[in-house]
Design a protein around this nucleic acid. Structure first.
Lengths: 313, 313
DNA sequence: GGGAGTAGGTCAGATCCCGTCCTATATCAG
DNA sequence: CTGATATAGGACGGGATCTGACCTACTCCC
């Protein structure tokens, strides 16, 4: 039962407080000496345990060079799952894949009794005042991530751009987050060619269980391949705006920013919908002028009209 | 080195794929028989490992009744930390505390080299088109959470409502998320009374190291105590709005909703700033009329004017 | 200086861990 | 049906390891 005790010890030490050796010994049901040895062992494993000496001292786990195994209680596990679910719906540039990987890992081992809590908290409520946009089901993301990792063929119903649906048999290769959307890059068995699928248009997703051989992409980088294909297909809006505010971190996150003068700067960004653009600009809270695209002006005026009507009461 | 191998095994099995025993034996550097025994041991610990028999079979970890220790690689740890940071800034009702607890636990052991990545990803970029509002520093939240858990006295500079600052010595009792804001409920040593502090107004936060004795609240439920005190103190806006749209889940998340007719409903909600209200309403994308408060009308007209000016170019 | 905490050495006995045999069983391909 | 390839698990012996009971040294705070 050594390993069980070691995990319990890790669990205790991950609580952000100090533990005197005597209390640890009591909780673990062993002698003080054994506790010291266990802590020695943890240090040997690369998880540094710091000890404050003298009276009122104790042990606590601190940051080292490797991630120790995280021992979570039920609520913490639910909180992480919910956090990752929303992160999957609103991908943060640079860690989109890692978020989904982590979510898949967690979902794989999440006890059943916690699952419905995650679903009810993370699914129904929309905690973020987003713009109306396509919503991706995190569960589909994790299923696909598992299929990619496990090299399993999948079958699903796909609703194409024009509304027609078809059943696809696909060897999944990679998932890519581009813009605000998730895409699956895979090899379509029936069409015998590489295809890109928007994941929110996928339904009835099942893993077939068939193992597939790794296959080389025609391109070097999957992410670049997908974004290139998408830009040539989907209509996106390229926007150029003058902002009457100094450059801030929040603005830098929107796109390319170049300062014009002390209190103004120029923002170049792109988006898939005009609403998305309009909201991000409005949320900045500063004056601005739109240079491109012309359609954005019309949309802004429409929004202004709606606001005026609402206030007219 | 048994425990080290067991953790490696857990790490491998948490990957969403199947592992044949032979491959596991090779990776762990032991015999097949030992792998079988290790898996037996995992099962005894309560982590169910499923095995598919026959050719092309293998082992994989499935959901059980207890959360197994999560073994994360660097990227996954960063993804979780970022997700929890944004979750702390945009609390999901019901798991606010668990989110912060989990974040504190993770931050405590997060290797230094990953810390700056979390900071640059989760701190600088604002992935969500939020309204301009008070931003809470997740680091302060975790520091406070640790102090609460460890029963440690804290010292900080507090910027009061009227702008004056003072140094406080506080025995922290609990953290409460109310509205879009985090509050600390604690016993002020100098004033010898319970006080509520808005956490975004706290600066120069330090744990003093002094251990404090648990103290009874004058109220039963800390969360209820805080929200009650706040409503009697802070100015909040109570809004009544008619929405020209059927009732949807997104609307239900905003506040109390009552259907009026087929295509209209009445929303009653409250918020601490007018901008917050205006954005949530605008994000719904439907026509609406404001009944209360009157100030909201003026704010909507101001927003409309800004949009019109932006589009005038 | 005393008390309470960590740090660590040593030793003997009990325990368990591991590899090497062995056989039974389930699944799939041909 | 048969062979191949998985998991499942019993038996055994030698070696490694773990644990508790001592012990001393050091540090910090009252």
């Amino acid at each position: 039962m050594t390993e069980s005790r070691l995990l319990s010890l890790l669990s205790l030490l991950q609580t952000p407080r100090e533990w005197p050796g005597g209390e640890l010994a009591e909780r673990l049901g062993v002698s003080r000496r054994t506790v010291r040895r266990d802590i020695e062992r943890l240090r040997a494993l690369g998880y540094p345990v710091e000890a404050t000496m003298g009276a009122d001292g104790g042990y606590r786990l601190v940051a080292g060079t490797a991630m120790p195994p995280l021992l979570l209680d039920d609520e913490e596990a639910v909180a992480i799952a919910v956090g990752l679910s929303t992160a999957a719906r609103h991908p943060v540039q640079g860690i989109e894949e890692a978020s989904v990987r982590a979510l898949a890992k967690l979902e794989q081992v999440l006890p059943a009794r916690l699952r419905y809590r995650v679903r009810s908290l993370g699914g129904a409520t929309v905690p973020i005042p987003g713009v109306p946009g396509p919503e991706v089901d995190p569960e589909q993301l994790t299923t696909l991530a598992a299929a990619v990792a496990n090299r399993e063929r999948v079958r699903f119903a796909y609703r194409a751009h024009d509304g027609s649906t078809s059943t696809r048999l696909v060897d999944p290769h990679r998932m890519v987050a581009a813009g605000r959307q998730w895409y699956l890059l895979g090899h379509d068995r029936d069409r015998d060619d590489w295809r890109i699928f928007r994941i929110d248009r996928i339904a009835d997703l099942h893993a077939t269980g068939a193992r597939i051989a790794p296959r080389d992409l025609p391109a070097e980088d999957a992410a670049a391949y997908v974004t290139e294909k998408l830009y040539s297909l989907a209509p996106t809006y390229e926007a150029v705006i003058t902002l009457h505010t100094p450059v801030t971190e929040a603005i830098r996150g929107l796109g390319e920013v170049a300062p014009i003068s002390e209190g103004t700067c120029r923002l170049r960004t792109h988006a898939d919908t005009l609403d998305w653009l309009a909201f991000r600009l409005l949320a900045l809270g500063c004056e601005f002028e739109v240079h491109e695209p012309a359609e954005l002006n019309a949309r802004l005026l429409a929004l202004a009209a709606r606001l005026t009507r609402a206030a007219a009461q």
